[in-house]
Write a protein that binds this DNA or RNA. Structure first.
Lengths: 132, 132
DNA sequence: TAGCAATTTCGATATTTTCCGATTAATCTA
DNA sequence: TAGATTAATCGGAAAATATCGAAATTGCTA
């Protein structure tokens, strides 16, 4: 009885969201800084920041500040909430996630100062308009 | 790559809800009919019905009609989405869930016709007013 | 067929969530 | 210190969700 029903629901809510789940799954491929995440996913920076805030609140990711950059990564296994492992296993096999991770590899090859000054258009693509 | 990110998110959303998660966890203790669930959880019947609709859509529960009663239960393991197992494991240890299951045992002892005609008040308790 | 009884669907409101541009805060660098 | 840059927060409009009584539906029973 480690926690409370409501707490578990909050944790689930945190990942019941396309962008947030995508960010979490992306980070499993390794630490990234916020601007890298925004670049990989082609999403406005403020959206990434908000997604990360929720994931942090839920205990799924941790941050590390280095100068003006903020690096985020999946919480170390020993501190991870029970859900996390199964979640990442499930998400890791999704095509979208694998594409994101591939893109992350390319982005990692660019030095941060160069990457981030590169004005990211981040075409605000609709997050709902899937072919249901 | 069995599914789609959006599908996974939908599945997670289905259980990111106090009542729905409670219902799902309750059913792990065995099949119940809708009116029994309403009685155990002290929640209006239409709310239970709606919760079950979502859980069914997400593939977590199945129904079996018998006369005018509808019995619901957790989907058999072979058909269960990957998430389910870990989810139930996590929820099963929650105090609230254990209480619900204990109540279910009492309710099962009452014959259905007797139980259901018993006008259930189901005090519309606020679902948000936790001491945050 | 009439009348219950169990469940689902509907309707309407209230609340929450989402989203992103603009602003602010923090930190580097010249 | 001024200027630039990265990230967080704010604002607020639009969309989605929650909730539960009332009405509709389905199927039993007499």
């Amino acid at each position: 009885m480690a926690e409370d029903l409501r707490a578990l629901v909050e944790r689930l809510k945190a990942v019941s969201h396309p962008l947030r789940l995508r960010v979490l799954a992306l980070l499993e491929s390794g630490e990234l800084c916020v601007c890298q995440v925004a670049e990989v996913l082609q999403v406005p920076q403020s959206s990434v920041s908000e997604a990360l805030r929720e994931l942090r609140r839920a205990g799924f990711v941790v941050e590390r500040k280095e100068g003006r950059w903020v690096f985020v990564s999946v919480v170390p296994e020993k501190d991870a909430p029970p859900l996390l492992k199964g979640l990442l296993a499930g998400a890791g096999s999704l095509a979208e996630v694998q594409q994101d991770r591939a893109r992350a590899q390319e982005v990692r090859a660019i030095s941060l100062p160069v990457l981030c000054s590169k004005v990211q258009k981040a075409v605000p693509v609709e997050h709902e308009a899937g072919r249901a």
